[in-house]
Design a protein around this nucleic acid. Structure first.
Lengths: 233, 233
DNA sequence: ACCTGAACACCGTTCAAGT
DNA sequence: ACCTGAACACCGTTCAAGT
């Protein structure tokens, strides 16, 4: 039927291909839109076939998270020789890039239980954490300072980017809600509750402005300044 | 059969009771452990009966989040006359209390799409945001400063508490994994990968220490100081 | 070696029917 | 008025069977 080499059937499925397709599905319709059956369908195959290449849905999601963060580890390896401030800047921007290009998938990175208790999302691999600690230690951080910096850095990234991803994810499609059909122009279901919230009503334009880029940059600056101050008091 | 008043059957089910039970289930086994059928079972009733009192699972989860945050709004109302720094301190501690007592449920607050785009978790009600803005404005914050403070405050809470809840949630039961039976003493599946991560291995004791309380307090201090500096430059 | 059909134990949800 | 049985369209996962 289809073209194939003489002896062996080229396998139509592979773990990498399956994980790619899974990320694709999540990007389009969120984690709720990812089912083994929908994924099989998307790949032109029955759902059961996936189990040859992936240990189950849990493993599949793990694969998606790894795919998202693998790029990040590469950045970290590449930038490991930079000054620690430049390094953290570039890592932060790389994580933000992931959050922005995959707003519906980013919560997976944040929310799924990491393999070890001292792995703090969004840095989810031992390798990544090791590089980060190594860079800090190489620039004069004590053990305690390096660990504290790691903690502050991860908290900062998570808080900032989860909220930014939520806003962008809502634009893309949110929790799989159909948009366009249905209510004609009902711009949110808490619209009249604003009568009891005069400040929110008055400041609505300001509250709706998107300053995520600048906020991220200045919050990152603040964090780096604080780390530097703690480093050489 | 069972005791009842003369005329009317006292309804065995109510929205509040259902939502209470749902939170109970989530607290015990995480969001994955909450199904309409399991919840019905837990309440001694068929799953279909729940639909009289709750619009569906989505609405049920909304109810759980509201239940978790209702206490928070009360705190905010009670503390609205305090100085803005005291107010933010007390609100922050109230949110942390929720994260600590409901570590498996807290991600719901963080991750579920809020009703309006300018509602930033973990502050999920218009009322709560309005109180916060009002307090800040009453103490000399400009509109822009108040909105910026609101954004910084929510990012801080989310990053800090989501990570703290994740750690505590893993102890409680995590993603519904059975603990105790199974592998005898296999303390985590990335144990030998530590060969390639010398810093992580060396610093493992330090990385495993839990300083979430102090970190929360000092990060909160830093945030408040920054807001104060911005307020009167 | 790889994919599939059939099957099992679950989901959320609806609706006519019972009391 | 409130709860239920039966049913529908979905899930994840297993396993013997097909090619």
């Amino acid at each position: 039927m289809s073209r194939q080499t003489d002896r062996a059937m080229t396998p139509r499925l592979s773990r990498a291909g399956i994980v790619d397709a899974a990320l694709d599905l999540v990007d389009r319709s969120g984690p709720a839109g990812l089912s083994m059956r929908a994924l099989g369908n998307h790949l032109g195959v029955e759902a059961m076939s996936l189990y040859r290449h992936v240990h189950g849905k849990e493993d599949l999601l793990e694969g998606v998270v790894d795919l998202l963060t693998s790029e990040l580890t590469e950045v970290m390896e590449r930038e490991a020789e930079e000054h620690w401030q430049t390094f953290l800047q570039n890592v932060a921007h790389a994580v933000r890039e992931i959050a922005i290009t995959h707003p519906l998938a980013f919560p997976l990175i944040a929310t799924r239980h990491p393999a070890a208790p001292w792995l703090r999302p969004p840095l989810r691999s031992i390798e990544a954490v090791d590089i980060l600690l190594r860079v800090l230690l190489a620039h004069g951080f004590s053990d305690e300072q390096a660990v504290r910096a790691y903690r502050g850095f991860s908290s900062f990234l998570l808080g900032q980017l989860l909220l930014e991803a939520a806003v962008r994810g809502a634009d893309v499609g949110g929790a799989g809600a159909a948009s366009g059909t249905g209510e004609p122009s009902f711009s949110g279901q808490g619209e009249d509750d604003l009568d009891d919230a005069p400040q929110v009503r008055r400041l609505r334009p300001l509250l709706s402005e998107d300053h995520s880029k600048e906020e991220f940059e200045t919050a990152l600056e603040v964090l780096l300044d604080r780390l530097e101050a703690e480093l050489s008091p």
